[in-house]
Amino acid sequence: MSKNVQSARSDQTQKGQQEQILKVENLRKTFGGITAVADVSFHVQKGSITGLIGPNGAGKSTTFDLITGVQRPDGGEVEFNDTEITGYRSDQVANQGLVRTFQIARELSEMTVLENLMLAPQNQAGEAVWRAVLPRARTRVVEQEKELREQAWEMLELFEIEHVAHESAGNLSGGQRKLLEMARVLMTDPEMVLLDEPLAGVNPTLEEKLIDRLHTLKEQGYTFLFVEHDMDVIMNNCDTVIVMHQGSVLTEGQPDAVKNNDKVLDAYLGEEVKI
């Protein structure tokens, strides 16, 4: 990451430990007869690692879709950094500094790993077609491309996938694709990242390293909300845990409190739970 990015992050950490970066109120979404998200409200604290858990089909991924504008909510509000972003298109959400990964890794398979990373940064000079073409304006594009290339290589090293830098993303293994997705969203220079099961398919050694990375990045001021089915990972690494069940928030709180909550146990055992 470039130096100015890092310093911006530490500024944020200093001033905003207690701020709520993301506020979700009464979010709702139905697909035909299925209510995927019934009524979801929660807040995420700036600079935290927050876990989002729940049985399969609880509505976690759909909640991510609603927050990031991939799907339009039927009701409810999303606020990010005190800006109401309900109904924003997903590119607008991303431009606010809120990005997400997909549960099923969606690498751009015909593009190389490096191209995937170079794509991500926002507001690139060369995204204006005339600047990309006209000789004079293009010098700036080339300058910026060099900077991005350096950032991309650093990111590859951070995630230890530099040996596949020139490989087509479609040729990566499942775990490598997950790493690529994470590296790619970080290249957008976000403030907050929503990770949908980032550790699925990643081997245990690498999993530990990745979790280490999350903590390092958290120290730099990033905020993470992540979905994960491995309870140990959630309990050991999250500041707060939100539990969803059948489209609603069952409970939220410190990992210990959540772990000992009977309702959570029942939900995971597939029993009827009163919300």
Binding site: T68, V70, R89, S90, D91, Q92, A94, N95, V99, R100, F102, R106, L108, S109, E110, M111, E115, L119, A120, Q122, E127, R184, V185, T188
Partner: peptide
């Protein structure tokens, strides 16, 4: 190139 491959991902990365 990325729009051709996956428009939703491209958009999720902040491209209009």
């Amino acid at each position: 190139k990325s729009i051709r491959e996956d428009q939703q991902v491209t958009q999720a990365l902040g491209k209009d």
